[in-house]
């Protein structure tokens, strides 16, 4: 299945965000819900199960100067196996202009056994733009080993590279669940905050409590707050035993006004 969706946000004469374009096709449907603070909130509504291997999905998001957009999904997406040898793709291309703000806070991506999936996001944020971006990956449904998934996130800020990370899990990926990468944690993810009003937060780490004699799969996970190079942005990176714990780790806790994650 191939599908493309597109979201273009601008501001009207009174500084409120309006959607100049909002279109999708199954299984990638977009629905606007009543927003607040003059911004808009859009849900990606999955019109079918999946993605299934072989699916090729693409979402373009353009947030114009001064516009405020929040994107959510109504449910976790479950990457599933499809035709043998086929790969499913979900590509997101987003741009955030000066004075604009994009909150990308979808539900989790679940890697089902046998899947082959690439989630590839590229975001360009202009100088003076704001970005809150969350990626969450659950390695397999309950009690299940994951298929092969790559979550690739590429963010540029003011024309310079800000974040490049590509997390790969699955049977074809050497050492992915070992102590150098996930330490047996079935849930992992990151939250990026780039906000011109908020300098990067200093590093902080929580290794998740008791260590000695604990089997790695029983850990409450671990999280680190990482100021990225250039001190313009902060990345939280976490591992967790389940999706709920992961979400707790990846909900920003900062002094001062916190970007509303809802």
């Amino acid at each position: 299945m191939r599908a493309a969706a597109r979201l273009v946000a601008r501001t009207d004469g009174r500084g409120r965000t309006v959607l100049a374009e909002l279109r999708g096709e199954p299984p990638l449907l977009l629905r606007q819900v009543p927003g607040r603070d003059g911004g808009v909130t859009v849900y990606v509504v999955g019109g079918a199960a999946g993605p299934l291997a072989g699916d090729d999905l693409r979402l373009d998001v353009e947030v114009g100067r001064g516009a405020v957009v929040r994107v959510h999904t109504v449910a976790a997406s479950v990457a599933l196996p499809g035709r043998p040898g086929a790969v499913s793709r979900m590509r997101v291309r987003a741009s955030v202009a000066e004075g604009a703000s994009l909150h990308w806070l979808p539900e989790q991506l679940v890697a089902a056994t046998g899947c082959a999936h690439l989630a590839d996001s590229r975001v360009m944020v202009a100088d003076g733009g704001t970005l809150l971006w969350r990626d969450e990956l659950i390695c397999g449904r309950y009690g299940e080993q994951p298929g092969d998934v790559v979550v690739r996130t590429t963010v540029d800020h003011a024309g310079r590279p800000l974040l490049r990370q590509s997390l790969a899990v699955g049977p074809d990926v050497p050492g992915w669940s070992g102590p150098a990468v996930l330490g047996g944690a079935p849930a992992t993810g990151s939250l990026l905050l780039l906000d011109p009003a908020r300098p990067a937060a200093p590093p902080e780490v929580d290794l998740g409590g008791p260590v000695a004699g604990t089997a790695s799969r029983e850990r409450p996970g671990a999280v680190a707050r990482l100021p990225l190079a250039g001190d313009a942005a902060t990345l939280w990176t976490a591992t967790a035993p389940d999706a709920d714990t992961l979400r707790q780790h990846l909900t920003p806790r900062l002094p001062g006004p916190v970007p509303a994650p809802t």
């Binding site: 690739r152 590429t154 590279p161 490049r164 990370q165 590509s166 997390l167 790969a168 102590p179 150098a180 990468v181 996930l182 330490g183 992992t188 990151s190 590093p203 902080e204 780490v205 290794l207 671990a222 999280v223 680190a224 990482l226 990176t237 976490a238 591992t239």
Partner: peptide, 20 residues
């Protein structure tokens, strides 16, 4: 920009713990 960017969450987390 297309060079490998393989991430390892625990490498980041462990490194920040170690430095303290």
């Amino acid at each position: 920009e297309e060079l490998p960017a393989a991430a390892a969450p625990l490498a980041d987390i462990h490194a920040e713990a170690h430095v303290t």
